[in-house]
Design a binder for these strands. Structure first.
Lengths: 343, 343
DNA sequence: TTGTACGCGTTATCAA
DNA sequence: TTGATAACGCGTACAA
């Protein structure tokens, strides 16, 4: 048998007698033969692997439910196709750039995922220069040659704000994620737009860092301010849960005196007290979609942006009417804004 | 220049004039030359990568703070040495075995980490058969040819139980992790031993699954039982936090009527209400230690088991004296049988 | 179908 | 001692 014939047989390519093919496959199986990845990689100059670089401080990573599920989603797609996931965790943005350079230079991966998009994200041009295929999570604010996996988070944030407005809240605050993150900025913008749409003033906003400590700090700041908000919309569940505990520490009843909404709908959200109203996203689905798109892209197929189902508001017990119902009607929202109905 | 000379120069091997070596290095840098990993891997039959297989259902993964930090610790060591981490997330134990087989057969990795050790873990012999170097997290209950990274969790669990006993608790329950996990079984055994050491009867124990839902279920079961425990020691923070919310839902004051301890000391532990008494482990450190050991092992150096500093009990506000202090001394548990006390 | 060149770095062999 | 030369690992691709 010739090596070439074997190669043809195993890759299921035409130009080979069925009989020979069968014979080759049989012998290969009998010998327990497996193609060697290093050799395959060398000759095809393909790594059969994709890369994910996560740039977050380690202590923050543990609390974030996004990445584990996202990775699991990626794996679901990858494992069926003999592709591997190469992971890199770095703590600085500079190290991140080095990681991508390394990936490209080493030929360790055929493509990468880009998460946590930033304003005018330098990675877009970097990857374009490196010629490394990529899929972004979310649409960059600059021109990007890469397909994006898109999830509408804003509508659900708007729904959360509308839900609070309907309950009668008029001072709705926001604890945002780091503002150089596109998703952080987008959630904040959605909160602002929803307030405007409800005919409410833009409430106080504190920019924080997605950590529990940061969430607690931000909450204290908001509760110390005047006017004190009657509802707080958090950019993730961890900060919201920390917010719950700050409320408890100040003997503020939730939702009696303070309504709280989270974002992520992490597993814990339904198991804190009170159970957290949150926005459900689907990191697993995003991982699957991103992996599919990336593999197609690596295959040289044209890939369009992928729009996933929008995030959903999940209403639980951490939201309710604001403390003084009588006040709710004292001053109505202006007529232009439509949002003047309440319970 | 000959390829061979270049190779010698770059790998810093003797048998080359210093001058030539310097010249080669200079030119290499000028050209921005980087060795191709596929080619290196092919000729050295080394992958320059290590593997981690995580076998947990995706929905559980998100809530567990261990793996992200563990991975970050691994990366800290790996990234300095041009090694990559290949991650695989699978949902069944069979798929897990396939993963390891694939790793070994493909030559994708030079070694692997083994976490979540199980009773008579089949992976130990599998990896031994495959000839794949490995490092285990914890010491297997069967003979293992692999070095282990060891952390004493038991003493801290014992400290938690002793702490509760000192506060006056006499019925101390346990919500365990899945019992086929070695660490789950070990924590349970530690809890039992500590109770005995404190002269207390073995309290009720519910085996759960490390999830918030499971923790809530287990807590309800314990609170419905007679005698009702006055303290519950959970095998992880997620279940403990879910336990807090069950207590709240039943209007049981924590720690007034029920004391709760967690395990992990996750970021959230200090930011729930009341802040959770928990056991602090160091997943990041474990990741670093495991990675160092694995790389040495792959290098052919002998590697002994590595003992890391023991886990520490962190006392916060979720533990306090049991409800009826007066009863504390009413009747002591008899050393032999201990099941005779109730609220 | 078969034979052979190729990709690329490593290592052993050999000549200078 | 120094550096050039060649073989090797293992599939793929293409010409014969």
């Amino acid at each position: 048998m010739s090596k070439g014939a074997v190669s043809f047989a195993l890759n299921g390519r035409p130009g080979l007698a069925e009989e020979t093919r069968a014979r080759i496959l049989e012998v290969a199986k009998a010998l327990g033969w497996r193609p060697s990845h290093p050799a395959r990689a060398l000759s095809t100059s393909r790594a059969f692997a994709v890369g994910l670089v996560i740039a977050r401080p380690p202590e923050l990573l543990g609390a974030d439910p996004f990445f584990p599920s996202f990775i699991a989603g990626i794996e679901r797609v990858l494992s069926d196709r003999g592709q591997a996931l190469v992971l890199q965790v770095v703590s600085s943005e500079q190290a991140e750039e080095e990681s991508y350079r390394g990936f490209a230079g080493d030929g360790r991966v055929d493509g990468v995922f880009v998460t946590d998009l930033r304003l005018a994200d330098p990675r877009i041009t970097l990857l374009d220069d490196l010629g490394l295929p990529a899929v972004t999570l979310g649409r960059p604010d600059i021109t990007s040659p890469f397909p994006a996996v898109l999830v509408d988070h804003e509508t659900a944030i708007a729904a959360a704000v509308a839900h609070l407005a309907e309950l009668g809240h008029r001072c709705i605050a926001h604890v945002a994620g780091p503002s150089h993150f596109l998703h952080g900025a987008a959630r904040r913008a959605a909160w602002e737009r929803a307030l405007t749409a409800a005919g409410l003033p833009i409430g106080p906003c504190v920019v924080s860092d997605f950590s529990a400590a940061g969430g607690a700090r931000a909450t204290r700041e908001l509760l110390d301010a005047t006017p004190r908000p009657t509802a707080i919309v958090y950019a993730n569940d961890v900060m919201a849960i920390a917010g719950l505990s700050v409320a408890a520490e100040r003997a503020l009843d939730v939702p009696g005196q303070l309504s709280i909404t989270g974002f992520d709908d992490s597993e814990l959200a339904g198991y804190v007290s009170p159970p957290l109203t949150s926005v459900r996203t689907d990191p697993f689905g995003q991982g699957m979609a991103a992996a599919q798109a990336l593999l197609r892209l690596i295959d040289g197929q044209p890939v369009a942006d992928i729009e996933l189902p929008p995030a959903q508001l999940v209403i639980r017990a951490s939201t309710g009417p604001p403390p003084s119902p009588s006040r709710r009607h004292k001053r109505r929202a202006t007529p232009t804004d439509g949002r003047s109905d309440e319970t």
